[in-house]
């Protein structure tokens, strides 16, 4: 199990514990964390699980894939630390990960 903290645009925090291997998107959906839609079910195909990676964790979450990059082209409010949560899978190394969410998924 590893811990993820989701922070809504309004500052509300949600901490959840999930099995390693589970994507950060699934971690939110499984625990009914508001602010992550995940319409495509984790196929990197809708960009509705857009999150901002806390800078401290950025080196551990890896790089965007090409498809992820292409999808983020069309998301709102994309920043250098923007990722799609379905493309980040929890590992022991990521235990304690903090991600922030945009105002809405689009």
């Amino acid at each position: 199990m590893s811990h993820v903290t989701f922070i809504e645009a309004n500052g509300t925090e949600h901490g959840v514990d999930v099995d390693n291997g589970v994507s950060v998107m699934e971690a939110a959906i499984q625990n009914s964390v508001p602010g992550i839609d995940g319409d495509c079910g984790g196929n990197c195909a809708c960009a509705t699980c857009h999150v901002y990676i806390d800078p401290k964790w950025a080196p551990l979450t890896g790089e965007r894939t090409q498809m992820e990059h292409d999808m983020l082209e069309f998301a709102e409010g994309v920043e250098p630390n923007s990722r799609l949560a379905c493309q980040i899978h929890m590992t022991a190394e990521l235990d304690g990960l903090v991600v922030r969410m945009p105002e809405s998924q689009h």
Partner: peptide
């Protein structure tokens, strides 16, 4: 929302 009506990918 798990449906194909809006398409998926860059043309969604």
């Amino acid at each position: 929302r798990q449906h194909l009506s809006f398409g998926f990918g860059i043309h969604r």
